[in-house]
C-alpha cells in the first residue's frame, strides 16, 4: 500500500521520499533541456517539439505502467490520489496558465529547474507564481460555484467513453506515436525553410 492511502505523506518518511521523487523529477526535466525557457517556448514557433515528445513519452510510460500494474493486481489504482476533474475551472485555468507559460517562458516545475541552473528569469517567474497563488486565494471566496462547475466531466476519459483503463492507455500510446511522427515532420519542414 502506498503512503497516501495510509495517510503517511506528511510523515517524516513521506516527506523524505517525496524529496527523492522530486530529485528524480528535476533531474529528468533538466536532462530533457527544460532548464531553458527558449527551449521550452520553441514549440510555440514550431521549431522544437521536445516539450510534446517528452510530455507524451512520460505520460504514456506512466499510463501503461500503471494500467499494467493495476491489471496484474500489484497496485490498487483506486487507492491513488488523482486530481478531481472539474470541467470549467480546468478549461479557464488552462487558458490562463497557457498565457503565463508563453509570456513567462516557464511552468512551475521547469522554473525550479531553471532557477537551479542559474536563470534569474526563472526566479522572477516563481515569485510571480507565488503572488498569483495568493491572488487566487484572495478572489476564491468571490468565485462562488464556478470552481465546482462542470463536474459532469468527472472521472477518467476511458470511463466516459465506456472502455477499460488498459485500452485507454493503449489509445494514448497510438495518439502519442502519431504526434511524434507529425511533430518530427514539422520540425524538418521548419528547419529547411529557415535554417538556424
Amino acid at each position: 500500500m502506498n503512503l497516501y492511502a495510509n495517510d503517511l505523506l506528511g510523515s517524516p518518511i513521506g516527506l523524505l521520499l517525496s524529496l527523492l521523487v522530486g530529485t528524480g523529477f528535476g533531474f529528468w526535466l533538466e536532462r530533457a533541456g527544460f532548464g531553458s525557457s527558449r527551449k521550452l517556448t520553441a514549440i510555440f514557433y514550431l521549431r522544437d517539439f521536445a516539450v510534446l515528445k517528452v510530455m507524451f513519452a512520460a505520460m504514456v510510460t506512466a499510463a501503461l505502467g500503471l494500467q499494467a500494474l493495476g491489471a496484474l493486481g500489484y497496485v490498487d489504482l483506486a487507492s491513488l490520489y488523482v486530481p478531481e476533474s472539474i470541467l470549467w475551472p480546468q478549461l479557464v485555468g488552462g487558458l490562463v496558465f497557457g498565457l503565463g507559460f508563453v509570456a513567462g517562458g516557464w511552468c512551475p516545475g521547469t522554473a525550479a529547474v531553471g532557477l537551479a541552473s542559474g536563470k534569474l528569469d526563472a526566479l522572477i517567474f516563481l515569485l510571480g507564481a507565488g503572488i498569483g497563488s495568493l491572488a487566487f486565494a484572495g478572489m476564491q471566496p468571490h468565485l462562488g460555484d464556478f470552481l465546482h462547475a462542470g463536474t459532469c466531466a468527472i472521472g477518467s476519459l476511458p470511463e466516459r467513453l465506456g472502455v477499460s483503463g488498459p485500452v485507454g492507455a493503449l489509445a494514448l500510446l497510438v495518439v502519442a506515436l502519431a504526434a511524434f511522427v507529425g511533430a518530427t515532420k514539422v520540425e524538418r519542414i521548419m528547419s529547411k525553410r529557415n535554417p538556424a
Binding site: 479557464v92 513567462g104 517567474f125 507565488g130
Partner: peptide, 11 residues
C-alpha cells in the same frame, strides 16, 4: 507570466 500561471494552476 508567473502570476498568470500561478492563478491558472489554482483554478
Amino acid at each position: 507570466g508567473g502570476a498568470l500561471a500561478g492563478i491558472g494552476a489554482r483554478f
